[in-house]
Computed example of a mutant assay.
Amino acid sequence: MEQFTKVVAPAVLVLLGFYFVRQHYQQHHFVEKQQQLFGKPKHKIVMALVTAMLLSPCMEIEAYFLLAGTKGWWVMASIAILYAAITLTGMLLWVRLAYKGSLKLNWHKWEHNAGIITGITLIVTGVISFFTH
């Protein structure tokens, strides 16, 4: 596992980064892909996000649920409701702030360089990950 996290995972990130940069220079169909995404029914997009959130592990909350399991169902339900309320409130606040800030940016310029930005971000993340593990 150590070998994987030290070498293989960063290498995959770097290779994906080069792939995105290469794809950017071979085709410029980002607007069509964006229109395809927005053409889908909203309930399918929401269900995909809910499924992704359901399947992603939350290591930090597991300990609370394990401890609450010894106290009874009402404590577990209370923690679940509290966790959901805090998480949803935080997400909604951050998304609102990010949305308000994003309205001030010139997105047309960024749209044409999306492949390069994504690729460089992946390459830099892979290189940093290689040297920090």
Rank of each mutant, 00 (worst) to 15 (best):
Y99K: 05
L37H: 07
H24S: 12
G126A: 10
L122Q: 01
L15K: 04
A52F: 14
P41W: 08
T121A: 14
Q27T: 11
P10K: 03
W107H: 10
A9E: 07
K33G: 07
F131W: 13
I123D: 02
G119K: 00
L16I: 12
K42P: 02
A114V: 08
L49I: 15
L55I: 05
L88T: 05
H108S: 10
V8I: 15
M59E: 04
A9K: 05
K6V: 11
L105Q: 08
G126I: 01
L66W: 05
I81W: 09
N106L: 10
L97D: 04
L103A: 13
A84L: 15
K44V: 07
L105K: 08
F131Y: 14
A77V: 15
T87I: 10
L93F: 15
Y25N: 06
L93Q: 08
L15N: 01
L122P: 00
V14S: 08
L93G: 02
V95W: 13
A9R: 06
S102T: 09
I117G: 00
L13C: 11
I61H: 01
G17Q: 01
Y19H: 03
A52G: 02
L15Q: 07
A68Q: 06
K42M: 14
A77K: 11
I128V: 15
S129T: 11
G39M: 08
K100E: 11
K71L: 07
L93D: 14
H133T: 04
S78K: 03
Q36E: 06
E62K: 05
G72I: 03
K100C: 04
K71S: 03
E60H: 09
K104Y: 13
L49P: 00
T118L: 06
P10D: 07
V31M: 15
A85I: 13
I117E: 00
K104M: 12
A85N: 04
Q26T: 12
A84C: 06
V46E: 14
L82S: 10
E60N: 03
T125I: 10
L82M: 12
M76N: 07
Y64W: 13
Y99E: 13
A52L: 12
M53N: 06
W73Q: 08
V46G: 01
L122N: 00
L105W: 10
A80M: 15
G90C: 15
I61P: 00
F30M: 13
L92E: 11
T121V: 13
T87S: 15
K104T: 11
L15G: 03
A85F: 10
L122W: 02
A48Y: 15
F38T: 03
L15W: 03
L37P: 02
Q23M: 11
L66H: 04
G115L: 02
G119N: 02
L55M: 05
H133P: 00
A9W: 04
